[in-house]
Design a protein around this nucleic acid. Structure first.
Lengths: 233, 233
DNA sequence: ACCACAATATGGTCAGACCATAGCAGGGAG
DNA sequence: CTCCCTGCTATGGTCTGACCATATTGTGGT
């Protein structure tokens, strides 16, 4: 025991400092999506660190869906603030599924939770249903499983959008991106999409009728139709 | 039109290649949490890239909660695979709240959704309730708002854990981390924690009684007690 | 007025050096 | 034989300086 009474000093890496500084500037200057950050070299000079450290901080911000970097020159070049939580979440889910931190079952359960909630929300809210209708038409016209899933994804994401909660929307989008491959397999296994299409119609009708309970129930049965093997326990 | 028929070639940065390679190795070799990645210098040599590019890839993986780097030597040094989606999600939420991509209202709504679902799940599942009981005791003994919130957080996270879904658990943890400051303010504004404690008891009782509907209702009213200003619409 | 070409600002990449840290190996003291 | 000290070494962390690729901007000639 060293008797100092101090815990181990938290090692702060340079790029974490840079990150904190950038975050502070975003908060203080009220920067939002579309605004530019200083160039890497300039930022390095301002903060008294090397460009490598600035770049590592940029990679983090890029990973979190907060900045996007363009090369070249002009008003659009450099690091620009963006607001894309979706891609960040998608990468996170994909990697953790690969690492066996998460199982597909958990992803689908989460989707179940979100969609029931979003459908009930949409039924009581006053968001338009145009996107939902358009997705239905796309599914009717689809000729392959891939194409069907594309519009199916659009329908379910529009459902989440209709909840009016951007965080839930972002999570929903990531879940669908992550599950894309499995969705196609599920549709091919089913063979016929009539049941799924009927489910969508029922969901949409419940929302337009303003019946949250029915909307949630419709979503629940729809998912049971799509993934029968997961609801047999 | 250039007549080539080729779209713009997707620019692939070196660190993205490195990322893909590492991801491939994780999948092929079946690596999981606890396994070590090669050292940065070695990886750079193997892949024929500079160490900087490898390091940028590492920052990404670290940001996503997939690796953790330790300096020094020995079995625990180097880049080790971990499975911490929570911290990654927390950083993501914090930054996007700062960027005004998300509003606190949306975060709390999401929490509402998760907790209702998790409580209903816990009521029908067969997970233990020891963690919930322990958190209750901690709240009873708490002397400051900070201390109370600490155990309150533990209670609500244990609730999410009891749902048996690790993805939902991780999201819950991130939401609470993100909201910590606001939670303390809410408790201080309330002054008395008796109502909140009673709400917890009711939730726990419903879960132990195996009544999902009552559990969800108890959660809903509990949140309305905690954030009255958000439920006045 | 227009076009070709140079200048320049930006991110992307690399090589090489040095530092701090933490386990490890070997040798000397007891 | 055991124990401790010391130097070795593998690891990530940081910096410097260079060069490349790209895209806009400026300039000069036609």
């Amino acid at each position: 025991m060293d008797g100092s009474g101090w815990g181990p000093v938290k090692r702060t890496r340079t790029f974490e400092d840079v990150l904190a500084q950038i975050e502070r500037r975003i908060a203080e200057d009220g920067l939002t999506a579309g605004d530019r950050l200083p160039a890497e070299r300039r930022l390095a000079e301002q903060l008294g660190v090397s460009r490598s450290s600035v770049r590592e901080a940029m990679r983090v911000l890029e990973t979190l869906g907060v900045v996007s970097s363009q090369v070249g020159r002009g008003p659009d070049a450099g690091a620009v603030l963006i607001a894309r939580p979706d891609s960040a979440l998608t990468g996170l889910l994909r990697l953790h599924l690969g690492l066996a931190t998460l199982e597909l079952r958990e992803v689908i359960d989460t989707r179940h939770m979100i969609e029931q909630w979003a459908a009930a929300r949409a039924a009581t809210g006053r968001h338009g249903t145009e996107a939902l209708t358009a997705a239905l038409a796309g599914m009717d016209a689809a000729r392959t499983a891939e194409e069907f899933v594309e519009y199916d994804t659009a329908f379910h994401c529009a459902l989440a959008d209709a909840s009016g909660n951007r965080l839930v929307s972002a999570v929903m989008r990531s879940l669908r991106d992550t599950m894309r491959k499995f969705s196609v397999e599920a549709v091919e296994r089913l063979g016929d999409t009539a049941i799924l299409r009927a489910g969508h119609v029922r969901i949409l009708a419940a929302i337009e009728a303003g019946d949250p309970g029915e909307a949630a129930a419709a979503v629940s049965e729809h998912l049971a139709d799509a993934y029968p093997e997961l609801f047999t326990h």
